[in-house]
Design a protein around this nucleic acid. Structure first.
Lengths: 244, 244
DNA sequence: AGCTGTCGGTTCGATAGCGAACCTAGACGA
DNA sequence: TCGTCTAGGTTCGCTATCGAACCGACAGCT
């Protein structure tokens, strides 16, 4: 029996890999630190590496001509960046960057990963299911933008971050949140006060603290949870169950 | 040499198939008529068939608890319905229905299609690239909802329909358009008048006629064209080139 | 302690669109 | 030819949010 260089990682996909798939990828994985604003994939440029996050949150954004960014999805320790590579495109019109950093990721050269996915049916199954959940999440972003007002969008977005960092203390500025949910900063300040007044969060300079996750879920309504439920159904248990 | 039952179809994916892939699918394809409101995939129910549209437009929608539908993507003769099946989920939380009908599709039992995709690397490549373009389109829906007002969203949506039916005469009610772009009917009526006044369209009972596609493109800005460009880059030429 | 940059609180006029009515005009059928 | 139905036109008060300021407070640096 050969000596297995098994890699321990908090990343849920790495954990979910079968033994053979793990062995297939392990020799090519490299652990790297990630800080806020690090870019994992640049707009319309070749995707060099795919990153299995071990913490933090990465944001996929669409860039408009006027320079505005619109967030269309997030990735955390439950996923891997660079989906387009697996879908047969070595680039994507979206930019992926770390919005909450101070963490690590296992990264793999994208060509090698694509080859592994081509080779292993079971690995492919996991990654394609992951892409399915990403599409569901993206559709929920669209729903949130279309049907929800600032408070609801903010609640959804705080939950996205909370459940991917598993921390109640989020280091975020109002300005940044405004960009992520497609609103003005003053609108975010107002909404945060409403949430704070209702006891769902507490807010301090540069931090938002989640106090009542359940009530945030109520506020986010249909716009949060569907993607996470698909993940739990198809890949591995994810997130806190709703204490009905 | 065996007798090849080659199937002729306006569907761009069927056309783009290699000879062997064509032979793999052809025996299982069945041509069926499709009318407006026919449902191709029901919310969270097993996807029985995948449909290669030969015309018309199908809409993928997310349903909210309050019964509201939000359109998150459209499919025409350039694509096939039921992506989730290929991604390893036999169901999806989205509902796909015909929004412009009076056409036909080649359909295939979803299990057979999944098996064919598993078996043929080249077929898989096409379908996965298709899913990539769908994700880009979905992200543009999110951008449209987040950053565009009614006129822009309407322009984008009319272009989506026009380029997939290749007709300038679209049979649509204001009420329906309102649901698709996430607005009130009266708002759509107003916006249509503005577009008509600017000479981009003409509007009559139950019909919208595209008069100036170029100017509609201007109005839709970043929210239209990216997905179509990806399609052209990765799969096959699609749509009218912009007459720069 | 003082300086400076960042972050957040707050205000205010402008505006897009909601939500809900009510009404008119084609289309279709009896 | 007369209903009746559906699609579309129009109005109106209301609300959320924009867009743009301005100011105060805190943090880190020197």
């Amino acid at each position: 029996m050969s000596h297995d260089p098994l890699i321990e990682s908090p990343n849920l996909i790495i954990k979910a890999l079968s033994h053979p798939d793990h062995e297939l990828l392990a020799p090519h994985l490299e652990r790297v630190p990630l800080e806020r604003d690090d870019v994992l994939a640049r707009t319309n440029e070749h995707i060099r590496h795919m990153y299995f996050l071990e913490g933090g949150v990465a944001s996929m954004t669409a860039l408009s001509a006027d320079g505005e960014r619109t967030e269309i999805g997030v990735i955390g320790f439950e996923s891997v960046s660079g989906h387009a590579q697996v879908l047969g495109s070595d680039r994507s019109p979206h930019e992926t960057f770390m919005q909450i950093g101070d963490t690590h990721a296992l990264r793999i050269e994208s060509g090698r990963f694509a080859a592994a996915v081509e080779q292993s049916q079971s690995l492919r199954q996991i990654v394609l299911r992951l892409i399915h959940t990403s599409m569901v999440q993206m559709s929920q972003s669209a729903v949130a933008y279309a049907r929800f007002q600032i408070e609801g969008r903010l609640a959804r977005w705080l939950l996205l971050c909370r459940d991917r960092t598993e921390t109640d203390d989020l280091k975020l500025t109002h300005e940044f949140m405004a960009a992520m949910i497609g609103a003005r900063r003053s609108g975010v300040t107002l909404a945060l006060h409403v949430l704070e007044g209702a006891g769902l969060i507490r807010s301090a300079r540069g931090t938002v603290t989640i106090v009542d996750r359940e009530k945030l879920l109520d506020l986010a309504g249909d716009s949060y949870g569907l993607a996470e439920a698909e993940y739990s159904r198809l890949i591995a248990p994810f997130g806190l169950p709703r204490s009905a």
